[in-house]
Design a protein around this nucleic acid. Structure first.
Ligand code: FES
Ligand code: FES
Lengths: 161, 161
DNA sequence: GAAATCTTGACTATTTTAGTTGGGAAAGTA
DNA sequence: TACTTTCCCAACTAAAATAGTCAAGATTTC
């Protein structure tokens, strides 16, 4: 299995969209700033998300992206798959042929593990995440705390501010 | 999370050791041939497994490796960790600091997923795998069927054999 | 028509993977 | 002792993947 920043960013960005539902289309620039993700990299990811109809786009000023269906109907596993990270942990990718064209000693172990992961991630929707207290707290911080909140926390409140 | 051939090979090799328990030390050359893994690559992996006391070694003719403790007491998660593949899926590796030194929007999701995987793999022992019918079947094939069994299966029984 | 936004494709530096190469050191066997 | 078998170790490497950047263009709004 592969789980890298690509998949993590995709889920984070989708969750950001979900959290700002009702504010009209959200620009990638907004998401990039709020979540600390490179804009051009986000563009690549949203290209894939759009092809899977997980998001809808509007061009021009005032444009941006919105969810392709309800937050309750978008599952984390879908999002990760959409950006091409596959959750399969077998070497043969399900073909039972990784040793001399036959099943290797550990195929079933990885296959079972993959099912575990698959089931887990496909039962959590964006809405489920939004309902979590910890997520709301971070979202609030991103709304108000702004860019350097963490630095302020670290260094104490500067005299001149 | 990272699960590549490194971790898969390590588990496969350990399972091979477990299956040949009682035959004295098993050489890496044997494992390499049976499981189709590069000998030098196995050496690297066993170096790490030995440092974690998951295997014990005997040098010289008649030497080889054996399990460091009972198959019932060696868990898959341990083996994977020993070869340095970490099962953590968070970006911050547990530090809650991946966005401006604070927790990102999705930290808990990855943290929970990591726990799932961790729990799953740490509750399966080598003995559990050995007890599986499918594993015994593959092990039998590796004992008798030998190197080109699969090719014979594919091409039909050659006339001259 | 200018600006904002999405859309696409090609390019790239860095890191990781999956090894290889080449040298040793210990132990048994003749 | 010489020889062979095995483990042990460190350095090197080709190929792939990652996490982007860069440049050009298409739509839409004002
Ligand atoms: S992982 Fe499927 S046959 Fe080896
Ligand atoms: S993954 Fe831990 S803070 Fe982002």
């Amino acid at each position: 299995m592969k789980l890298t920043t690509k998949g993590r960013y995709a889920v984070t960005a989708m969750l950001d969209l979900a959290l700002h539902y009702g504010e009209g289309p959200i620009t990638l620039a907004d998401i990039a700033q709020r979540q600390g993700i490179s804009l051009s990299y986000l563009e690549q990811l949203f290209s894939r998300l759009r092809r899977q109809s997980l998001v809808a786009s509007v061009r021009g000023p005032g444009g941006g992206y919105s969810l392709g269906k309800e937050a309750r109907e978008i599952f984390i596993g879908e999002v990760i798959s959409a950006v091409d990270e596959n959750m399969d942990t077998t070497k043969c990718h399900g073909a039972h042929n990784c040793q001399n064209n036959e099943r290797c000693l550990t195929h079933d172990l990885w296959s079972d593990l993959s099912n575990q992961i698959y089931t887990y991630l496909n039962n959590i929707s964006l809405q489920d995440l939004m309902d979590r207290k910890a997520v709301r707290e971070v979202a609030d911080r991103q709304e108000h705390g702004d860019v350097d909140a963490s630095l302020v926390d670290q260094l104490g409140t500067p005299a001149g501010v």
